[in-house]
Simulated scan of single mutants.
Amino acid sequence: MELSYVEQINQAAGFIRGRIGGRLPSIGLVLGSGLGDLANEVEDAVAIDFGEVPHFPVSTVEGHAGRFVVGTLEGKTVIVMQGRFHYYEGYPMRQVVKPLYVMRKLGVQSVVVTNAAGGMNRAFRPGDLMLICDHINMTGDHPLIGKNDPELGPRFPDMSEAYDKSYRELAHRISSQIRGDDGDALELQEGVYCGISGPSYMTPAELTMLARLGGDAVGMSTVAEVTAARHCGLRVLGISCITDMAVGDELEPLSHEQVMEVANRTKPKFAALVKTFVREAEV
């Protein structure tokens, strides 16, 4: 007999709990393309490949190691997703968001969800970090379609503050403490993230449309995960690494390798921001 979605989540959480002992995490980190090296800074770490976890798919995208790392970061126990699952890999939305529910079952209260994104706001530049204040779901799907189990969350979850305002305020305060190579403080952008299905990059006309709808950045992840996170009561900080400019009437050819290269250059200030946030955030 096929297990229910909740039973699959409980089995996955039980497997991870058995591997990590009594060190249950309070903060989860979801690390996007080119940003996964932060997991290497977790101390006393236990690494668990996604393929080992019952009822989990595997990550197939370059730049995504495809594993959980559980341990200590800045004095707190964390669970890090070094990579993620994407809708465009062919996985149903419920598979894409399953790790968020598993984190919640393990005791996680807050998550930092990160991604590499194209900047549609003309004030942005490649290498900027953008705090996500809101999102627009343009994937054509939704992770909560189907029967709702109240053990996971309410049938109609509120999304009026999907990205925690107090967490964004804390991130802005932290940014003034972080210095770049030029000695200047880290300046964080803030804006609306548009989530698309992918895997193709968007056409100029599509990007112009999204910008007119109010989007500041565009990417192929995050929206479904944040929806599930709020469904099960997790507080969320969202951060986009702007890896390229996605302005419709100025669009230039783009490759995944270019995205990875800019994300790699941005890692030092990204890591400093996330580590300080983990240390100072209330969960």
Score class of each variant (00 low, 15 high):
T227S: 14
R67S: 01
D37E: 15
L186H: 08
E43H: 13
D244L: 01
G119I: 01
T276Q: 13
M209C: 08
G118E: 01
A217D: 02
S255G: 12
A271D: 03
A117I: 00
S197A: 15
V236K: 05
L38Q: 11
S200G: 05
P54W: 13
V112H: 08
T276R: 15
Q95E: 10
V111M: 03
F156Y: 12
S33R: 08
L144Y: 04
P199K: 14
G233L: 09
M1R: 10
G21Y: 14
I136D: 02
R212N: 12
F15A: 12
T208G: 14
S33V: 09
T139D: 03
V108I: 01
V218L: 03
P253D: 11
V102S: 02
P143S: 09
A117C: 02
V69N: 08
L144S: 09
S26E: 15
E261R: 06
E280Q: 15
G14R: 06
L207D: 02
H231G: 05
C133H: 10
G180Q: 01
A39Q: 14
A65L: 01
A65R: 06
K105S: 12
V6A: 05
G198K: 00
E261D: 04
K269H: 15
T266D: 10
P126I: 01
G153Y: 00
L131F: 09
V70L: 02
R235Y: 07
A185E: 14
Y88R: 12
A12D: 14
K147R: 15
P54D: 11
S33F: 06
E161P: 00
G233V: 05
G248K: 04
Q189H: 07
L24A: 03
G71C: 12
I145F: 04
Q8D: 11
P25D: 14
D181Q: 15
L170P: 00
L144W: 02
V223M: 03
F156L: 10
